[in-house]
Design a protein around this nucleic acid. Structure first.
Lengths: 223, 223, 223, 223
DNA sequence: AATGAATGAGTATTCATTCAT
DNA sequence: AATGAATGAATACTCATTCAT
């Protein structure tokens, strides 16, 4: 009853009640899982970061595994929609679309300290959480690839890009960005001076990709 | 001959193999670390797979952590050194040198089901074992980057490559390969049908890089 | 009343006794340490004797060593303090004060089968637990010596005692009592018939000390 | 065969052969047992200090317990004989005999870093090695007490000492010296600045005892 | 006689999970 | 709904002991 004071939040904002708890726990858990990895993450740390005690976690999640899965599922949701919307509404040049998609990836995910952390988690735990791995594959990876495949194919069909092995090039696009995300949340934390390229990474990367995709006048590329 | 007497142990039980043991333990440890992850790997399992008991591990390594370091050092330490040798002895075109280095990386690491697993391990555990992360950085990452930087710079100086932001391009080279290695040991294990590109990945990648690096006749690249 | 609800636990199982637990654990630990010695004392035995399980010990003490320190502090910490209080409030003859202090030592420590066991423990483990040894020195030994030093000095200044080498005589006072305590918990346990003097030890000891400290008419003491 | 070089020692002294081994091991073991206590003493350290390897210890002693018992038995031997010889041959004043005995105890045992260490060991381990405790009692303690008892009784009979409770006074003589020996090998090792009296301990002690034993002219001792 | 590689039982410590309040 | 005291299974590490050489 005395607690009701909390429900009436002075700022009129979101009040701390049981409805908010799962989200707060998921938030806190994401942080800790990312920092420590699944095995080393302690329920007590997660609870503390969410401002509750260990026991409370079990009111919302049956065990650590379920919490982990909820964290991933919840964080995954926001990562997909945008790309498809962008592609669907785009009518201009394929290069511009590619740039736009990369720009969004960069700003919304790579630069977001929370969103950028998921790949590391999934790479580390996929074998122990195959169900999660499959969800991630279906929700993030396959749609993401399809998106990039479409862009490349569109560009090739229009003669904007040279004909390349689309599925492979998709990996060349995904690889450097995911690699960077992983490093941000692993080695770079442990090795203080470590750099991940020399500034303006996104611009460099766009240029790199478009240079590679540019149609050649003659077959001058590779011997 | 003298060695054979030791290797072919008549009795399955205790046998003296002081010279061979560290290697056998490192081998077994690599397997178990890759399968289970560092934290979940039990010293007893590692020992058992090496055909010894727990205690024996501590005759050769002071720690679980030291064993892990030995695994990394032993598995990848030599690889980068070999790359530098190749580069040092190379006098031909930078593109050929790049191809040669990528070929070695591909065949000796990416295609080796054990060596290819280490980046995933390191990414997963770097935050919890900073000492290990720093060792990996010094043994593998920094030398590897330096190697690729040299190749690129050599190509640019000779006019074989266009002038690019070297440190970034190094990441574009490393990214797709490490990403592939990570996938091989995580999602691909959990998602049966998952593909990592459509065949001839290495050839595609070489072509992709060289196309991007090729000097442009005019500024035709990107607006 | 509110406390009683906790103390009388209806179910033998889990009950919350946060306030009482540390004391119960210290009690149990003293027993086990005395019986087995520090190294041979198993945390599990201590826990069991306190009616809890292993894990519970770690809710209250970070370490076996810290538990040991708590045992020493709790068992002897108050005793010396009491001695100082007695000395501070004493205005009569030094001999009487000395008798009073010895009486307390005798009744509260030598005759307490648990408190009397600590010197033996400390003597046995000091080399392996220097931190503990230093704590014991500061909590028990140095204050105890200071107390006796004061009494002797007071007696000498007042002419009640002859002038003696105070620091040495302090050892002559401590020695027989600590020696007796050690024997009670070692040889006397193993050698059934062993005697530690012939009754009325305390009275004898007081007389012995006061006879030695008595001022001499002439220098008749030693040739 | 090449080893024979060891047998022919250049200095003509005691050569290292199997006959000497047990003694060397006992020597080394005494050191380590005293430093660490029985439980914390590692067979490997003992072996190393004796210049052999762990396995060798088991050629001479069936296990750690037997080695410990051998150490104590062996060291005990030297501690008894002298005192009795002195007493047997003494015809002068009891005080002089007491002084002589204390002097020998002081110089041969208290000041000998090896011999002085036994009491600590036995006090610490008597409960776990009752057989040893009984041996120590019979070989050292009881004869030692008897010796002191005789001296005191002789002094009392001759009127050199006042009539005291002999068995108690024996403890007052033994206590400070044994206490000192224990401290030398325990707290004093761990607490660097610790002092055990202020110099000339032996002289002080003799004086202290003789002052206490001196016959009183009148009943001036204690009320 | 000596070695030292190998063993494996034993224990302090951690942490996910439970449940009385 | 929330707490936090209590649990107990799990594991890294130590060291006395064995035995093939």
């Amino acid at each position: 009853m005395t607690q009701d004071a909390q429900v009436v939040t002075p700022l009129g904002g979101r009040c701390r009640r049981k409805d908010a708890r799962p989200g707060e726990l998921i938030d806190a858990a994401l942080d800790v899982f990312v920092e420590r990895g699944y095995a080393a993450a302690r329920l007590e740390d997660i609870a503390q970061r969410a401002g509750v005690t260990k026991g409370t976690v079990y009111l919302y999640f049956t065990d650590k595994e379920e919490l982990f899965e909820a964290v991933v599922q919840h964080t995954l949701g926001g990562m997909v929609a945008r790309g498809h919307l962008i592609a669907a509404g785009h009518t201009g040049r394929a290069a511009d679309l590619l740039r736009e998609i990369l720009g969004h990836w960069w700003r919304d995910i790579v630069c977001d300290p929370r969103a950028s952390a998921l790949p590391k988690l999934l790479i580390a735990e996929a074998c122990n959480f195959p169900r999660l791995a499959r969800a991630y594959y279906q929700i993030v990876i396959e749609p993401g690839r399809a998106l990039l495949r479409d862009v490349l194919q569109r560009g090739i069909e229009r003669g904007e890009f040279r004909p390349v092995a689309v599925d492979n090039v998709v990996q060349f696009i995904i690889g450097p960005l995911v690699y960077r995300q992983c490093m941000q949340h692993s080695l770079q934390v442990a090795v203080p001076g470590m750099q991940l390229g020399d500034g303006d990474f996104l611009r460099s990367f766009e240029e790199h990709l478009l240079a590679s995709l540019a149609p050649t006048v003659a077959g001058t590329v590779a011997p």
